[in-house]
């Protein structure tokens, strides 16, 4: 009885976690909280669904193009809005990300129209028997892909020179430049990885819902809540909090009622903001990406 909601919770939690780490990556490296993050989820899903509709193109190629389109849109955002505003007051930057989100939503509406589209899952949807419960292969696929991507990102950030350069840029951009680090290029890389991951989330989540312009909005808000609950400093902390959030809201949805899901998620966020604003994994000296 509990296995099924637990697995679906882990699956949606994995999606929140992908978004949460993508939020944090640009936040740490460029200092900007990108409120357009959810719109890149939608861009990835729309592009993939359009390409998949063309005869003869395999689904996996469509998915990769969707991710590429989201990453490309992120780089364009860095060039067009982040770079000119980076030395301006922080409020201008944040408002500009909200504006980018609106522009992307409206552009998607113009290009793809108001009718929802579909995107098939990359794996066939089969129910398999697991400890006496029926669970879906699509859920398992979501869990595996999110986990692999987040672990891979964590390893890149902590074990490679690129990761150290990103860390250096995020904590002290001036000193990073003194070390010969091309900080401008690293910010672009951070945007591309971040919005690319949002695109992945879109492609993973689209088969569970339908592809609409609002696809990423609630997911991004939940991911943001997870960042707050986990503590806005560290990436693994936010990922763990995101998975936890997915599980908790899904169990609540099953045992209390579907309407309680969002209430629980954002209620938890507000509770943390009031009682423990530094989040579960706290912001201590010497925080890493």
């Amino acid at each position: 009885m509990i296995i099924q909601p637990l697995v679906s919770g882990l699956a949606i939690g994995g999606i929140y976690a992908l978004l949460a780490v993508s939020f944090l990556l640009t936040y740490r490296v460029s200092g900007v909280l990108n409120f357009a993050q959810g719109e890149f989820v939608m861009v990835g899903a729309f592009v993939a669904s359009t390409v998949a509709g063309i005869a003869g193109i395999p689904l996996i190629a469509a998915a990769l193009l969707g991710v590429g389109a989201a990453a490309f849109a992120g780089v364009a955002m860095e060039r067009v809005t982040y770079r000119p505003l980076r030395n301006k007051p922080h409020a201008s930057m944040i408002i500009s990300t909200v504006a980018v989100g609106i522009v992307l939503t409206q552009a998607a509406q113009l290009i793809w129209g108001p009718n929802p589209r579909t995107l098939p899952s990359l794996v066939p949807n089969v129910s398999i028997d697991f400890l006496g419960s029926r669970i879906s292969t699509v859920s398992l696929f979501l869990i595996v892909i999110s986990a692999v991507l987040i672990v891979a990102l964590h390893l890149v950030l902590t074990k490679t020179r690129l990761g150290r350069q990103l860390e250096a840029t995020s904590v002290d951009s001036d000193t990073a430049q003194l070390m010969g680090i091309r900080t401008g290029r690293l910010v672009i890389i951070a945007f591309a990885i971040s919005t690319g991951l949002a695109g992945v989330a879109g492609i993973l989540v689209a088969p569970m819902f339908s592809v609409t312009v609002g696809l990423g909005v609630l997911i991004a808000l939940k991911a943001f809540a997870a960042c707050v609950i986990g503590g806005f400093g560290n990436l693994p902390g936010a990922a763990i909090a995101a998975v936890g959030l997915g599980v908790v809201e899904n169990l609540a949805g099953t045992f209390i009622g579907t309407d309680s899901k969002d209430l629980i998620a954002f209620g938890l966020m507000i509770a943390f903001l009031i009682v423990r604003p530094q989040g579960i994994f706290g912001a201590k000296v010497g925080e890493k990406l």
Binding site: R164, E167, A168, V171, D172, T175, L178, G286, K288
Partner: peptide, 11 residues
Amino acid sequence: VPEGRRVFAAL
């Protein structure tokens, strides 16, 4: 070598 050393604390 900047004033105050500016080592990357978390590395």
